[in-house]
Amino acid sequence: MIRIVVVDDHPALRAGLSTVLRAEPGLVHVGASGGDDESLWPVLDTARPDVVLLDFHLPGADGLQLCLRIKERLLAPKVVLYSAHAGRGLALPAALAGADALTSKAAPARELFEVIRRVARGERVLPPVTREQLDQASEQIGEEDLPVLGLLLQGASRTDIAAALALPVAEVPDRIRRLLGALRPPIAQDTL
């Protein structure tokens, strides 16, 4: 039994996913939210999902930052970033935001179910980050953020990062946020 919460601003998508998930044995749709603060956090508190299906492009909120905040929770659920364009541009930011998977909205239902089952088992289903993407990313970010990027990609925890960089642990989330802000693919080009 895998408990799933859907976060998407489009009602048709929430309704459709709820229907599809309900019909699939072993998966339970336990709640949905439009991605706004008023509905999202209460839903996560009461539904206690194993997996969150999170839209990348949300009005008024950035899916990546939201992913980061969800993963910062105690007993954080697995997060599947669900995007209309799960293109190459998103692979690195998704990994840095702590997402467990990146899936295209154009993928057939079976593929989506498969991804949900795999992340629920503890796997990460992210496209590999290429050398080219890393080169490009290192040009986009500040020099002091480079070690944060490297450590995050190696799967280091917040306390590891704080120790390695001699930073207070409380400052690490802000550094990651800044890093993500710099790497965010421009909506108009890559994600539209």
């Binding site: 489009h10 048709a12 459709g16 996913l17 599809v20 909205k105 057939p108 239902a109």
Partner: peptide, 18 residues
Amino acid sequence: LHDSAKQRVHVAHLLLTA
């Protein structure tokens, strides 16, 4: 087109593949 129409097509696709 992107925010609404395309999302609905994605839903229809998902339902049909299921």
